[in-house]
Design a protein around this nucleic acid. Structure first.
Length: 113
RNA sequence: UUAGAGUAAGCGGGCGAUCGCCUCGAAUUUACUUCGGGGAGGAAAGUCCGGACUUCGCAUUUUGUUUAUUUAUAAACAAAUAUGAUAGUGGGUAACGCCCACCGGCCAUCUUUUACGGGAUGAGCAAGGGAAAGUGCCACAGAGACCAUACUAAUUCUGGAAAUUUAUUGACAGAAUCAAAAGUGAAAAGUGGCUGGAUGUCCUUCGGGGCUACCGGCUUCGGCCUUCGGUGACGAAGAUGCCGUGGUAAACCCUAUCAGAAGCAAGAGCAAACUAACUCGUCCGCCUCGGCGGAUUAGUUAGACAAAGUAGCUCGCUCGAGCCCGUUAGCAAUGGUGGGCCUAGAUAAAUGAUCGCUAGAACAGAAUCCGGCUUACGGCUGCGCUAAUAAC
RNA sequence: GCCGCGGUGGCGGAACUGGUAGACGCGCUGGACUUAAAAUCCAGUUGUAGCGAUACAGUGCGGGUUCGAUUCCCGCCCGCGGCA
């Protein structure tokens, strides 16, 4: 899991990522990336109740995605805020499929060193 | 032994490998290093009730009492009023619409009676105050849905205006007949049953028997009454003197009891505190008496500033109507008492991710904290019940 | 965390104080007009079974009150919206 300093926890940071960030969308999720002025990668995840009404399902998805980013963290460029927006299509995918999709999205935005 | 329905007393995966998160404590080289402890539920859910806690208010008008003084205001208390909720009785509780026990009702089984009915059992059901305070509603059908037998016609009788031929016609009014209360309807005005006389009618083996207008007698049920038992709901017995009142209050309503409002984004503290606009309060001045101008406090919105202008940081925040074991009062819910224990505290929100073995593993994720209710739930255990089979 | 509103044929939307559920519009089906179509007009249309008469089910779901429930009461499910 991610350390506290690797999370986005301010409404303003989310707004900035939405307004000025680079985008990459698939039918499973969307990814926003923006410079944050800090020497860290920070992650925020959005899952609405429209994805699933069960809190258990939403929490599990968040934990799995955090785990994926955690393992990729040493290979990424520091100083970026990442925001992931999850859509309901992702419920059909297993852990391995989600992992490869997110890694390819990170490569598209050229976030690797 | 197997299966089933039920109840809810207990449980709600385990082991291993790799990589991580939150929090508390200790150590050091003060590094987001190392070591050690702890880390979701029986429903954490729905938000349907009830409390604790916090802030605001003492709300509305009227009445009464007390206190204070500036003698018409302020404060406190009580009653009435409005709105909402609850509804057999007693108990439990911080409180409840919850829980326990009991009472009455319904249902099932057994039993008893000529019959209505009575008695027993149930780990069966159940929102169960008042319909002889009042109002409303009861479709269709029906005379009538609560002033019971309407309205119209016909016939008869009685009274009788008026007309004339003075004993006839009879407007009009009243009563009866028609008219059986069958039938209609969810419901029909006297509550169910037994029985005597009597009328009519049918059957008859001529002994009698069936049905029945009407007039009684006894009894059941319910109400008024008396006595006894029970804290009480109520029960039992007596007295036969009087009475028989449709349903619906999950229609208005009446009666009794209870309730101030908002919610941890409650609320408290800390740092910073510049400008503009608006709103409310207070003070000063002017006056056309209602506004204008100025100052100040609080709040809201927008902008500026390394950051924040607020969902910032700290507290509230987890020791509590707490859990476990024993003992004691009580039918029980539950209470008293002795000993032991400390058992999540996050905040874009930790309590895990991936893989392997096991057995295929449900419903589901704390957010101030508790007590209930309701709903979801694969499997295992406990308990009594029902059915089948086997043995004795 | 707190608080409202709604759910009726294929679709929108009625049904007033409980009394024959589905008015009205759109759509759909069949027919007329046309060489053919559109437009227009006529008829039908909740579902299932049936040639039909008719029967059964039916207002999100499950109970209850009542002679009788779309309507009243209780508990759930789903959808939409608001406040801090």
């Amino acid at each position: 899991m991610l350390n506290k300093s690797n999370r986005i926890n301010k409404d303003k940071d989310f707004d900035r990522a939405f307004k000025t960030g680079q985008s990459f969308y698939t039918k499973d999720f969307g990814l926003k990336a923006v410079d944050n002025g800090v020497d860290k990668i920070r992650l925020g995840i959005l899952i609405s109740t429209k994805v699933s009404k069960k809190a258990v399902v939403r929490n599990k998805l968040k934990r799995q995605i955090k785990e994926i980013v955690q393992t990729e963290l040493p290979a990424l460029k520091p100083g970026k805020d990442l925001v992931l927006i999850i859509f309901s299509q992702i419920l059909d995918k297993n852990f391995g499929e989600i992992k490869s999709l997110i890694i390819s999205a990170l490569k598209k935005l050229k976030l690797y060193i």
